[in-house]
Design a protein around this nucleic acid. Structure first.
Length: 645
DNA sequence: GCGATCAGGT
DNA sequence: CACACCTGATCGC
């Protein structure tokens, strides 16, 4: 919950995400995303009156946020005063004091924040230095290094202050796996890309429906929406609850997915950056100051500051880190890179150049222009602002333009905690046939095995882990929570140690562990490659995990696509999960790939693809998802790249 | 009647 | 579980 008061020390004439109290006097307003705790005072009569008297006051936000905001008639009085700014397009804004006529210029750039649809971070550049307000954000490790606009040429910009989302800035949230998405239908009505992947048809395998006593339903293999099955055969249901804080409370390292009941699981998931992601972000930016916007649960301001401080330049006065060589931008758009040096020169000279805007509709196709505008003086105290043409007006809103960035999160209940995704399969629909075809295919029923059926020694390996991992790096089956008991322990070296603990009953922390992912590493996925039955079980689980598919994913470009897919994601994550039920393996594999990519993408983008791996095409994936959403069966020709082994 | 705030619940 | 949201009750203007 944001406790940011609305103003930054460097630019007090601007108010961000707070619209009450002293913010009533702001010369310009910024909204990072459409969540109520960032909209305090936004529809208050006092602000409405102010607006009526101060005609030069505007609210700046992303096109998607504008769209979402105006969905509610309560904010319709803002309609004429909202200026949607395109993402990654530096725009100069005049902050005018209507009483005195005094004017201050700042250049603002919206950067995708990965928190919810339309969410952005704001980068301000002006006479008082360059500051970054993150709003709520979730950026995977390394992602900040790919943001061209945080760089001048090949260097990270000299950032005076960062106003940071520190929601999970606590070591207990050290690592949160990249996402698994879920969704809800209504709020996506203006988001065609997402709609494409969801359906009102209840006869699907993946459900995001809710019910106060959903757990009861699941226990009896029923779904809250009331759907039974097409042909009368009983359903087999598993539920997965996305959670973050629940995991933060575990006393030991756990897997990414933990079994909490016979057929219920908790999947670690968040729309906020984890502790390690925050540290990565900040240590890369290395601002002079960092101010927490949020005090994490159970923490104190002092504690958070203690964590942030060492990552700031003000901590050690040494100048050695003042400029960090960026090296190659990891996702640099080609044309931009080519002109990199030139840009840098321009920036250094603070030359005046007209601001240029990307054209929304072409954005995806058009190579990124070099940061169009002159870099403002980044040294605080040395005003050298050049005023270029101001183009804050009439920016088209384009929902699609930056969809990839926004989609990542979508559901309004994102959060999680209590929304669970459930998957079901007809009991008779186990993909046995396919198994015959592909030995490494996971069996749907594995997911439904009773505890009792699971051998402790792992000899059977229902959900086996592979040996892939040792202990240290994130493995698919990483160590399990101490609390848990195991399921996975079966032969896997990884999953397991659970044993040390006694099982405590399904409920809380008990068991399981299916997979862990942890961000990164394709290496972990090795397990996929391992053949044989053992893998199967895992694979199943894996899907959720997504990443498993590792072998093929990971190109940057794939990543982008994946994100796309994700977005829609209910399906994505879910699909994955449900795969077992899906009759086709291929589809599973593909799905896994895709999801994995994206979910992991965040952290994996630097991992090169496996040499002979094949990347699924975007169209292909979209088609698959569309079919899945409608319950249509999918048959895909098998590719040699399928889980090998 | 409307808002702000709080409690309780999803 | 302090995520983010909603509803309802209470209080003050």
């Amino acid at each position: 919950m944001s406790s940011f008061e609305g103003q930054m020390v460097e630019y007090p004439a601007i108010s961000i995400d707070r619209f009450d109290r002293q913010n009533l006097m702001a010369r310009a307003y910024f909204l990072s995303h459409c969540h109520k705790d960032h909209m305090k005072g936004l529809r208050a009569p006092s602000l409405k009156r102010r607006l009526e008297c101060s005609l030069k006051v505007h609210l700046y936000c992303s096109p998607v946020t504008k769209e979402l905001l105006l969905t509610s008639p309560k904010y319709s009085f803002w309609e004429k005063r909202i200026i949607a700014l395109e993402i990654e397009t530096p725009t100069q804004i005049s902050l005018i004091d209507e009483a005195s006529g005094e004017k201050e210029e700042v250049v603002v750039t919206l950067l995708p924040a990965g928190h919810c649809p339309g969410s952005v971070m704001f980068l301000f550049q002006g006479n008082n230095g360059t500051v970054l307000y993150t709003g709520d954000f979730r950026l995977a490790k390394g992602e900040v290094a790919r943001m061209e606009l945080l760089h001048s040429g090949s260097r990270v910009k000299d950032i005076q202050s960062v106003y940071l989302d520190t929601t999970f800035c606590d070591p207990k949230y050290y690592q949160i796996p990249s996402r698994v998405h879920v969704n809800k239908l209504d709020m996506f009505k203006n988001m065609p890309d997402i709609l494409h992947h969801i359906t009102m048809d209840r006869h699907t395998q993946i459900h995001a429906c809710r019910h106060p006593r959903a757990e009861e339903f699941f226990r009896w293999n029923r779904l809250p929406c009331g759907i039974v099955s097409k042909n009368g055969t009983p359903l087999q249901v598993i539920s997965i609850k996305p959670s973050t804080m629940w995991f933060g409370e575990r006393s030991r390292k756990t897997n990414v997915i933990v079994r909490t009941g016979e057929s219920s699981y908790r999947a670690c998931f968040s729309f906020h950056s984890s502790y390690s992601e925050i540290k990565d972000f900040l240590s890369y930016i290395r601002p002079v100051n960092a101010y927490p916007n949020v005090i994490p649960v159970g923490a104190t301001m002092d504690k958070v500051v203690e964590i942030l401080k060492p990552l700031c330049r003000s901590f050690s006065k040494s100048t050695e880190t003042k400029y960090k060589p960026l090296g190659m931008l990891k996702r640099a758009r080609t044309t931009y890179l080519e002109s990199e040096d030139e840009d840098e020169d321009l920036f250094d000279d603070s030359q005046l150049l007209p601001l240029r805007h990307k054209i929304p509709n072409q954005q995806s196709l058009q190579p990124l222009l070099p940061p169009p505008k002159p870099e403002l003086q980044e040294c605080p105290g040395k005003p050298k602002l050049s005023i270029a043409s101001c183009r804050t007006d009439n920016v088209q809103t384009s929902l699609l333009t930056n969809f990839i960035d926004c989609e990542e999160s979508n559901s309004e209940d994102e959060e999680q905690s209590e929304t669970s995704i459930s998957f079901h399969g007809d009991s008779n629909s186990t993909p046995l046939q396919q198994e015959e075809l592909y030995v490494d295919t996971p069996e749907w029923k594995i997911f439904f095995k009773n505890n009792a059926d699971i051998p402790d020694d792992g000899s059977e390996n229902l959900i086996s882990s592979t040996e892939a991992g040792g202990s240290q790096s994130p493995r698919l089956f990483s160590d399990s929570d101490g609390d848990s008991t195991h399921i996975s322990s079966q032969n896997s070296s990884q999953s397991t140690h659970i044993s040390e603990q006694e099982s405590q009953g399904w409920d809380s922390q008990s068991d399981t562990v299916l997979l862990s992912s942890q961000e990164r590493n394709c290496g972990d996925f090795i397990f996929l490659n391992k053949s044989g039955s053992q893998i199967r079980g895992l694979a199943t689980a894996c899907q959720l995990e997504q990443n498993i598919s590792g072998p093929k994913d990971t190109s940057a470009d794939l990543k982008d696509r994946a994100q796309d897919v994700n977005t829609a994601s209910v399906s994505g994550g879910a699909t994955t999960v449900s795969c077992e039920k899906c009759a086709n393996e291929e589809e599973k594999n593909l799905l896994n790939l895709s999801t994995s990519v994206d979910s992991q993408s965040s952290s994996d983008f630097e991992i090169p693809s496996t040499p002979d791996a094949e990347l699924p095409k975007q169209e292909h994936l979209q088609l698959l998802y569309a079919k899945l959403a409608t319950g249509e069966s999918i048959v895909i020709e098998r590719k040699h790249s399928t889980s090998s082994s």
